[in-house]
């Protein structure tokens, strides 16, 4: 029987929520679900038993190096010649780990998976393509397969009967050529309001705002609605706002109650990151913009003219109630 290995996603040593999503997905693939962590093994046992993990393997904190390649090489060594599935998150660290694991295991890698299941001996993954308009199922013909799963695509579900995962220590593979990349400095980009991936309301701005100064309307509306400001890739690349604001394929995937797209045309790579929102309002000059195909309410108009009026109207409504 194959083991499903999950490479935990950790930020500042703390398990990220996507880890429980990965574990939930892994349960569909194998009875034996092992989680590889870099430090915090005891906490992981505590947190992940509820999600049905059977083993936690801790290599200890890695210090100031990139974790991805090391964890990828380590999981491969732990697997040896055995059949296995390796699951990582579709994140920066997760993709680095998936890449290295696939090389060491000589295993195909399937990325951007939004669903996983087993069909006999085969692992079947689900992917959204063409901006999420098409869902394809892929399968890999191999005994060992690496899958990177998009955060927020699998709902983390606890098991009825909590497991008691075993905890063991392992040595991180740091001597393999090229796995060590030193981290000299970590710079955090501060952002206003709730975090983008947890906010119930997200208001994002794009090129249609016309100029960087107009982004303040996005921030103002977001703040009035108790939400987080976001951005399209276009204005992040143009340097209007830091990358931490980016919603989309290469940025953050959001799933809020309400998503307001201001001056965003809705390129494929943006739609993938926000079309899971419960309600979508879009403001765009171009009536043919793809964003309108996913919007519950679309307004064809100039964002720069509409935003001040909208902010005023929302403010009045707030005062009235």
């Amino acid at each position: 029987m194959a083991t499903a290995w999950v490479i935990a996603e950790q930020r500042d040593g703390v398990l990220a929520p996507v880890t429980a999503e990965l574990v939930t997905a892994a349960r569909e693939l194998a009875v034996d679900v092992a989680v590889l962590v870099a430090g915090g093994g005891a906490e992981a046992v505590e947190a992940l038993g509820r999600f049905g993990v059977t083993r936690v393997v801790d290599v200890g904190p890695l210090g100031d190096v990139l974790a991805g390649p090391i964890l990828g090489a380590t999981v491969a060594r732990l697997i040896g010649d055995a059949p296995a599935f390796v699951l990582t998150a579709q994140t920066y660290t997760g993709r680095d780990a998936a890449a290295r694991a696939s090389v060491e295991l000589d295993a195909p890698v399937l990325t951007n998976a939004v669903g996983l299941r087993r069909d006999g001996a085969e692992l079947v993954t689900e992917h959204q393509i063409f901006g999420g308009s098409l869902v394809v199922e892929a399968a890999a013909d191999a005994e060992r397969v690496v899958v990177a799963v998009r955060p927020k695509s699998v709902v983390a579900v606890e098991v009825d009967e909590q497991t008691q995962p075993t905890l063991s220590a392992a040595t991180a593979v740091t001597e393999a050529p090229g796995v060590m990349v030193r981290v000299i400095e970590r710079r955090r980009e501060e952002r206003a309001g709730p975090s983008l991936d947890e906010a119930t309301v997200v208001v994002s701005g794009g090129r249609g705002l016309g100029k960087p100064e107009a982004y303040r309307y996005v921030e103002e509306l977001a703040s009035l609605l108790g939400g987080a400001p976001g951005a399209s890739r276009a204005i992040v690349d143009a340097g209007w706002v830091p990358y931490a604001y980016q919603v989309g394929q290469t940025g953050t995937t959001v799933k809020p109650e309400l998503y307001v797209a201001v001056g965003i045309s809705g390129a494929t790579q943006h739609l993938v990151g926000m079309k899971g929102a419960k309600h979508i309002v879009a403001i765009n000059k171009d009536k043919d913009a793809p964003i309108f195909s996913v919007a519950d309410l679309g307004v064809v108009g100039d964002a720069l003219s509409l935003m001040p009026r909208l902010i005023e109207a929302v403010r009045e409504r707030r005062h009235a109630s």
């Binding site: 930020r11 990139l66 994140t91 920066y92 990349v181 030193r182 981290v183 000299i184 400095e185 970590r186 710079r187 955090r188 980009e189 830091p242 990358y243 931490a244 953050t252």
Partner: peptide, 11 residues
Amino acid sequence: RQVEDGVWVVE
């Protein structure tokens, strides 16, 4: 290096 909440300098 781009990371989720900022930038890391790597070498």
